[in-house]
Design a binder for these strands. Structure first.
Lengths: 259, 259
DNA sequence: CGTCACTTTGAACATCTTCAAAGCACGTGG
DNA sequence: CCACGTGCTTTGAAGATGTTCAAAGTGACG
């Protein structure tokens, strides 16, 4: 139950890219077995505790980080405003490709739980990038998908109330970490982040989030106990996420007709 | 005064990339004079009327479009929600690089005024991309900047009221199209879009936008007459955009202390 | 066992949305 | 050239939605 922030285990570890369970997932699938072996030797890996920074906005870029295990939060600030959580990163994702282009980090990344992370230095990475056009395109593709995600979030914020955005987030989390995640049943998952984090992700305040969660609970759409979320009916949750005609909630059924 | 939507002038035109006044601005500056001459021959150019689609979300990608002259709006939809304007494109910008990666367009682009646009087919483009790594990196850089823009917009929406977001938008427009733009003085510019467009860009409704513009006018921050916006004091407008301590407005001066 | 950050609650209030209707502006077709 | 329609803009009033502030409750960790 205790988080691994202690130094009982060695921080530096040895991870073999070839055996990485997440190898097939992302941009690195572009590399041959031979390249992967080379990459393994050129990279460094280590264990992160919960809540550790991976990289920090404003500091010089230091290459990319491959999230072999765990979950991370990508945050962005623009002083004098407080930072917000702009997106989550799950096992298999590579972080920091945005920063490849040089200069300083435009976001911060922080672990949400104990993680295993591999680090690839800029010099090493550009060697591999020069070798494989597919790898390069992979990163560009990831960047493009993040842009899609960000713009889709804008759409949600523009048109949907917090309740629907929260439903979308829960649906998203259910898809990403529902089936896996230790020994809990289908339609259940453990929230990987705090309420404050969720509030930031939805562009609202913690107080509003609390009340909106309770509102969904009151309507039996989800059950929430601490970190454990139970979704009795995915269909029901989906209806909440996209308020179409037939969504007669306790709040009285609106009949929006969009252009 | 009449828009060029008539067919008085030929739609197809001949434009020389080497002489393009916007050549230095963007990713194409990576190419040599020789390459640019080749590109000129391989591309096609034409005149667009106001309000014409350049590409449409959901349709197959058809290469990139270089905006030699004019302004365009990039819109995104996710049914059943109405579309929103996610960003503007000005002269010199190249559109559609997001779509290079294949599949269908994830956004739509539409001219906001009469435009001159060059079109480069996928086959031609990938030839040049293979030739120049700098060009490829240029596109990746553009993509990364759009991501920054999108996430910065999220930050604004999360923390700032419509009034401050509107001030930011006006500031942005003043920077982009203030100095140029025919014969109007410094601190003035012509709005390139409708109120509805502005509302979408700020994630609010046209009614709210109208009232917020009037609120800024009432406090003498800007003067607006039709499309003509006058900014008496850029400093004053900047203060509105970032509501720090010392912004004592007519609404009574809030004293927010952010973490 | 105390501290600190996160969470929840309540009440007051500000902001923004919604709906309906009228006013404008522009382009189309007569 | 004018009349008309269509879509954009503005106005008003009512009300929903979300924020703010203050304070109490909770839990993790040293």
């Amino acid at each position: 139950m205790a988080a691994l922030s202690s130094n009982a285990r060695p921080r530096a570890v040895q991870l073999e890219c070839l055996d990485c369970p997440t190898r097939a997932l992302a941009e690195w699938s572009a590399l041959s077995d031979q390249d992967m072996t080379q990459l393994s030797r050129a990279k460094s890996s280590r264990r992160y505790g919960k809540g550790e920074f991976i990289y920090v906005q404003g500091e010089a870029c230091s290459g990319v980080y491959c999230l072999a295990q765990g979950t991370a939060a990508i945050r962005r600030a623009a002083l004098p405003l407080p930072p917000i959580l702009v997106r989550l990163a799950f096992a298999g994702e590579t972080l920091g490709y945005r920063n490849l282009l040089g200069g300083v980090c435009t976001t911060s990344a922080k672990t949400l739980e104990p993680c295993l992370i591999c680090h690839i230095e800029p010099a090493v990475l550009s060697r591999f990038l020069r070798r494989s056009v597919r790898l390069s395109r992979g990163f560009q593709h990831h960047l493009a998908e993040d842009l899609d995600t960000a713009e889709a979030a804008m759409l949600s914020v523009a048109w949907l109330p917090v309740r629907a955005r929260l439903a979308s987030l829960l649906l998203y989390l259910l898809e990403r970490i529902g089936p896996e995640q230790s020994a809990i049943g289908a339609g259940e998952f453990l929230l990987p982040m705090t309420r404050r984090d969720m509030a930031e992700l939805l562009c609202t305040r913690p107080e509003t989030l609390t009340r909106t969660v309770q509102s969904l609970e009151a309507d039996r759409v989800v059950r929430v106990a601490g970190n454990r979320v139970t979704v009795p009916s995915t269909r029901r949750l989906r209806e909440e996420a996209v308020p179409e005609a037939g969504a007669a909630t306790s709040s009285g059924g609106r009949t929006a007709r969009w252009a």
